[in-house]
Design a protein around this nucleic acid. Structure first.
Lengths: 164, 164
DNA sequence: CGTAATTAAGGGCATATGCCAATGTTGCAA
DNA sequence: TTGCAACATTGGCATATGCCCTTAATTACG
């Protein structure tokens, strides 16, 4: 592991926060998805259903914000769920610009079905990683995912982003 | 934030390690990608180029392993980079089953060009998050991404996975 | 009251990611 | 030597993710 690195600046591959996050996410997605497979939901899909259940009937924008997901990406991700009858999307009568997403009975049932599998995956992660450590990690990740963090990141930029 | 949660088990949305990871990854990817945009590389692509530079001329399998990335996903990700002339893929003369990936001069130049932008993004992340904390986080994420962790996760499963 | 600015969402396009099946290579054993 | 098991990669299909631009609906302002 001593070859090649001399050409790179001290800020090499192992030091990129984004890369470290992406690798860990891929690994954990693989592990969780393998456990979730019998119910037919992926962790991404389950995550979306959970957020809808928690929020009741959020608008696309609210849901995208909660998921730290681009609006159009959310729209794409909802298509398989809508096709399979797990969610319905209907215009908000109070503001016809908005469309609200809700779980169907089938969607709630699927979420329920996935719960035991998810509990198993989560338990295995906590066992392998440590429950306390996992809690700390989630808190740290939530901080990074927050809009406050994005603001703090932007604030470190040059003055060209400072409005007025 | 008190509505809706009563229907869910104590293991609710905020406690899923996979979801927390994905949200943080999306956020950081967005922040880094916005900074990297002027050079035309995304953080995923830069990450691939960096790994190739570090490894010299790795085979697809070696590179996929290092990136914690599915082999076919890597093959797909390399296509735009090959099309744009940043990498070349050639059969390994010693084992014609393998194909080895290498940077072109153009790829090295592009990597060099991206360095200043990446340094800026990284510096801003460290400023907003804390350099020591960032180092700890990367170490934790590297642990999770490691194959050892995958083995530990599998080992917590039922006895049905125990070989022999 | 009508028009401009704002906001919500979708469509088009491109990259990212993964599973499974198919293809081609190598090495070993009978 | 021939045939088969193991291995590396690709191709097809599906989902995931994001940007830009357009469209539609609401709100604000003159």
């Amino acid at each position: 592991m001593a070859d090649g690195k001399d050409r790179l600046s001290p800020t090499d591959a192992g030091s990129c926060n984004g890369t470290a996050l992406r690798k860990a996410t891929r690994r954990v997605s693989q592990l969780y998805d393998a456990v979730l497979a019998p119910c037919g939901l992926r962790s991404t899909q389950r995550s979306i259903l959970i957020h809808i259940a928690r929020a009741g009937a959020p608008s696309m924008g609210e849901l995208a914000l909660a998921l730290v997901l681009d609006r159009s990406a959310l729209a794409h991700n909802l298509k398989p769920l809508e096709r399979d009858g797990f969610v319905v999307i209907a215009a908000d009568p109070n503001d016809r610009r908005s469309r609200r997403v809700a779980l169907t009975a089938s969607g709630e049932a699927k979420l329920e079905e996935s719960l035991a599998l998810w509990d198993d995956a989560q338990r295995r992660f906590e066992t392998a990683f440590g429950p306390d450590r996992a809690r700390d990690l989630r808190a740290t990740l939530a901080l990074i995912a927050s809009s406050d963090f994005a603001l703090a990141f932007e604030a470190t930029g040059a003055a060209d982003v400072a409005p007025r």
